[in-house]
Structure formats: structure tokens, C-alpha cells
Nucleic acid binder design. Structure first.
Lengths: 219, 219
DNA sequence: TGTACATCAGTGAACGCGCGTTCACTGATGTAC
DNA sequence: TGTACATCAGTGAACGCGCGTTCACTGATGTAC
């Protein structure tokens, strides 16, 4: 629940309807994919006429952007909450996986096939870097890596703009990127169904990937 | 080039037009995404009327399935060619990456957001397992891993249906799955643009992921 | 080589559909005095 | 508390559009004798 502030009844109502529109939108996405999202269909499902939605969203694009923003916000909050409750890097990863499994469409709206020509507004990319920041914190808290510096870590010494404000050694940067790509590799294949019929348990593969990075953990 | 066999001129013409339809389809997908694929638009671009395409494809769905099949076929051929020309596991991975970078839309049609309700026909999933088989071969050819068996490798001893006909030790199965997920993790984030603006070179991250698995290589 | 017939690529009209979006409007809710 | 006015949620008609798909057809290409 976000802070409601001091709202007039009308403002409260508006916010409520906006939320319901987004809920219906998610239902549609779950049923037929994001590309099938239709304002008219949402309106019909809510018992309203199509044009009524234009009171709440400037158009289809703004609705989709709002959904993407919400998805990012939800993921950032999830990861942050795990971090603040004392979870380690593996804990964050498992929280992320749980979040994705709970609603794969939300995951794919962020990390799935990009829409040609779509560019996320600044506030959305800001949330994305907030997630990365939490990840960096968790990596920095890990016992430090004793292996020799990788060539990629050396490369990162000079290419660390994305970690501005995080004075961590390059090995930590490397680890953060690595955990990031491994999480998405295992997760996106699992969620897209590329493991179905193969027989093994995707959760164990996921855990194995993390163990390889951080040493076996309690998960 | 696939074998043409003995074709009448009419058969040759048909095959040719089918190919052109698929080419235009890829162009459309590149321009506006797979969901925007329209038979009418393709026909118009080819200077034909819409219904004419029904001589070549039963409908939109069959066209998309043909595109997916072609994409899988192309990837399987690429990976197999690399393998047969003596490339090691890292070589396969780099071949796969090059294939994906050459045409990201083709990559995402296979590994991107799944279409709700769509189920690939058997011959397509067969090509997918062909790719996995090549990967297993390459993993088996690697110097064997001296580290203790992972819990996941133990799990794979009893869950190896997907590797039927490949009598390799569980550690190799584990390695094959690992390289598979790591490739897709680094690649899908790169192709979807999640690294843009971060400053580092995605190629080096990709290589680093492979080195971690196979030991530094010549790439 | 020529004729009769079969095959089949492509056309154009038509079907019903749902889309995003605009516009002028009605009627309910809230505000100011 | 009551009245006059402003705000604004939602309607219904209309716009132009493109979609997938069907159908009966024309006319060119290929085949059999």
C-alpha cells in the first residue's frame, strides 16, 4: 500500500478506478499476451463504454507504461524488502524468483521480448537501477573473492558508470553482473517453458547456479 | 541450401514465393514485432491481394509456426556446423551469440516472451532437442571436472530423460544445462537492451561467463 | 505439332469484427456563498 | 440549510482503419492424347 495522502473522495475514486483498469489489463495480458491488450475490451469487462477510460489514461501507450512501471516498482520493492530483512545474495535471488513465478507475465513485460520502438521513460529506468543498487549492496556484503582478478573485472574498472556511487571493488561489480545474468538465464528459460518435459527440477538448477557463485547456502 | 530434389517448375515457383512471404514476414517482425505480423500487409508489400497468400499458408498461425521452425532449424544448423568444424564448447557458445546478434528478432521468436496458448508442433521441439544434443556432445568433449559432485548433478542422475541416448556422466549434464542458462542469461539481457547505457562491453561479460565454466579459452 | 482438358495462382468483392480515438452531450457530485 | 454554479465521470454515436478469412471467378500454365 502506497501512502494515500490527503485525498478528496473524488481523488480516491479516481485512484481506485485506475487500479481496477490496471488489474483488468493484467488479466488480459495473462490471457492473450501484452500485444492483445485492448482499452475497449477492458472497458467492456468493467461495464463501461470504451471512451470512459480516457479519463484515466491518455491512451493505450500510457496504460502499458504504467503497467511496466508498476512491475518494476513491485520487483524493486520485493528485492529491497528481502535485503532489508537481512537476506544475503542468494536470498535476494530466491525472492526475485518467487516474485517472477508468482506472475510470469509481469516478469516478461519487463524482461521479455522488447517492443520495437518502445523506450521506457526516465523514472522507469531509475527504478531499474535501484534494483541493481540493491544487488550491488548484497554482493558487497559477501565474503570477498580470493580468486585472481578476471579480465572482465579489469575491464569494469574503467566501465563502471552504472555503479556510480557504489565504491565497491571491480570483483564485486563482476559478481553483481554475473548473478544478474545467471538469474535471468535460468529464470527466463524456466518461465518460458523451455524446461518442461526435460524432467529435472528447475528450482534445483536455479539454486545450483547461485551456489556456484556464492558457495552453498542454507536455501 | 536444402536439397531441392526433382521439382517441377511449378513446385519451384511455389517454394520461391513461400520463401519471399517468409522474408517479408521477418521484415515486418523486425519493424513492429511478431504480434503485428499481418498477412494482408505482407501481400500488399509483395504486390498481391491478401487472399493470394492462402495458396501458400493455411493462415496466420501456420506462417508463424513456419517462421519458428526456420529459426530453430537455422540455429541448430549453426551450432552443428560449429561443432563439426571442431569448435569447442566456448566456440559453440560464441557461434550461438553471433547467430543471435545477426538477427535478434529471430532469437526472440524462439526464446522471448511465450505466446499464451501457443504450443510448438513436435517436429519443432525435435529440432530444439537436436541443439541440446550438440551441446551435450561439446560438454562431453571437455576435460572432465575434478570438483565434487554437486547436489544438482546428483538430482540429474535420476532426471535425465532429456539426455536419452547420451551416456554421459551427470556432471556433464549439469555443465550442459549451466552453459545453456548462462548463454541465455547474458544474451537475452544484452539483446533486449538491458545493458545499454551501463558502459561495459557485453561481449566481455559473455566471454567471462564461459571462461568461468570451461577455463579461459582462446576466444 | 496441335487441340482439349485439368490444374492452379491470383483477383476482387464481401463477411463480420474489434481496434484507438474524437466529440458533443447528460447527469451526478462537489463547492462557494 | 438552501441555492447557483463549476467540475468532471461516463455515454453513445461516429470516424477511419486494418484485420483474418470465405467465396466464386478469371486467366495463365502445364498435361495427355
Amino acid at each position: 500500500m502506497a501512502e494515500t495522502g490527503t485525498k478528496t473522495p473524488r481523488e480516491r475514486y479516481r485512484a481506485q478506478v485506475r487500479e481496477e483498469i490496471k488489474e483488468r489489463a493484467w488479466e488480459q495480458i495473462a490471457a492473450a499476451g501484452a500485444s492483445a491488450l485492448s482499452l475497449n475490451a477492458i472497458a467492456k469487462q468493467m461495464g463501461m463504454s470504451g471512451p470512459a477510460l480516457y479519463r484515466y489514461f491518455a491512451g493505450r501507450d500510457e496504460l502499458i507504461t504504467a503497467l511496466i512501471r508498476d512491475a518494476y516498482r513491485s520487483l524493486a520493492d520485493t528485492v529491497r524488502a528481502a535485503h532489508e530483512s537481512g537476506a544475503d545474495l542468494a536470498g535476494l535471488a530466491h525472492a526475485l524468483r518467487a516474485w517472477a513465478l508468482a506472475d510470469p507475465h509481469r516478469y516478461f513485460l519487463i524482461y521479455g521480448t522488447p517492443v520495437p520502438g518502445y523506450h521506457a521513460p526516465d523514472d522507469v529506468t531509475l527504478i531499474a537501477s535501484e534494483i541493481m543498487a540493491t544487488l550491488l549492496d548484497a554482493c558487497a556484503a559477501l565474503p570477498s573473492d580470493r580468486r585472481p582478478a578476471t579480465p572482465f573485472a579489469v575491464h569494469l574498472e574503467d566501465h563502471r558508470e552504472w555503479a556510480d556511487g557504489h565504491p565497491v571493488p571491480p570483483a564485486v561489480l563482476h559478481r553483481a553482473l554475473t548473478v544478474w545474468t545467471r538469474i535471468h538465464g535460468a529464470l527466463s528459460l524456466e518461465l518460458a517453458g523451455h524446461f518442461t518435459g526435460m524432467g529435472f527440477d528447475p528450482a534445483l538448477l536455479f539454486t545450483a547456479e547461485l551456489d556456484d557463485l556464492t558457495g552453498p547456502s542454507a536455501h
